[in-house]
Design a protein around this nucleic acid. Structure first.
Lengths: 145, 145
DNA sequence: GTTATTTTGAAAACCAATTTCAAGTAGCGA
DNA sequence: TCGCTACTTGAAATTGGTTTTCAAAATAAC
């Protein structure tokens, strides 16, 4: 946590960018929040306490987060880009309920390994991957239908 | 092939929709082409032989394709929706070159099975999934970086 | 053929993402 | 501290793909 703030500040100065009040506020809020936020989600949250901060600033700051590695972009097919704060933990994938939209994170090294194999088998050097499983969660199964 | 055309016609009449010259042309072209076409790709291809057909018609027709199950939508994160014609074959996933954009299809039953396991482990009923591996293909590796 | 309904194509609307620009701010050096 | 320069900000405009609108044209049933 503390070191992600540091990572951000280091990245800024290294790129000749400036540390500003807005960027600090946005970073704090981003780290505090649940993940999988869209630009709009974060903008709306921020607006409650900091009405002055504009959408464009949130957008640009999130982009910097992903450049410096403290956030990753996700894309679940609903037309909105979401940002997820990276953790020291392993890479993970997502299980998404098609009914209620619940998102569960999981990781499975066996799947990761097989992916690596597949890539190699086609002569590819794997850089990243994305796995999403869509289904129906327990709750929604019980709600009938 | 023949039966996918039939599937489409059946769907139309079942929904009270009409069979038109444009829809037939678009279907023919769609089945003839490589997969992973965006609306624009298909529109541009069609325009060569059938300049009269409008973008909106291609868009709407592709939507019907996906409703009746002869096409599936894909989303590789470049901001364009792509349509892939479904085959009788197994489900497959994608290997995508981050440099030249080449798309390779693959399938791996071992991965599929592990996904099923993961879903079950979280109490989910798996409906579908999406797996994309991003990397660098052999060609682009040789082109140096 | 006539009629009711659907479809078409061009243009407009839509919406998230991205850029523009004038005013404001940070950070450096004097 | 002051001044300068470059970067940042927020509002508004723009972009680019998607989706809808609407009047004219085409289809299917009568």
């Amino acid at each position: 946590m503390g070191d992600r703030k540091q990572t951000f500040r280091d990245y800024l100065s290294q790129q000749g960018l400036k540390s500003t009040r807005q960027r600090e506020i946005i970073l704090d809020e981003f780290l505090r929040c649940d993940s999988h936020l869209s630009t709009e989600d974060l903008y709306l949250k921020l607006r409650k306490k900091h009405p002055g901060i504009g959408y464009a600033t949130v957008y640009r700051t999130l982009k910097i987060f992903s450049e410096c590695g403290i956030a990753e972009t996700r894309n679940f097919g609903d037309g909105q880009t979401r940002y997820e704060s990276t953790t020291c933990e392993e890479h993970h994938d997502h299980l998404i309920c098609k009914d209620c939209g619940a998102i569960i994170e999981f990781e499975d090294p066996r799947i990761e390994q097989l992916q690596e194999q597949v890539a190699k088998g086609h002569g590819f050097i794997m850089v990243s991957h994305r796995l999403e499983i869509f289904g129906q969660c327990t709750k929604c199964q019980n709600k009938g239908n």
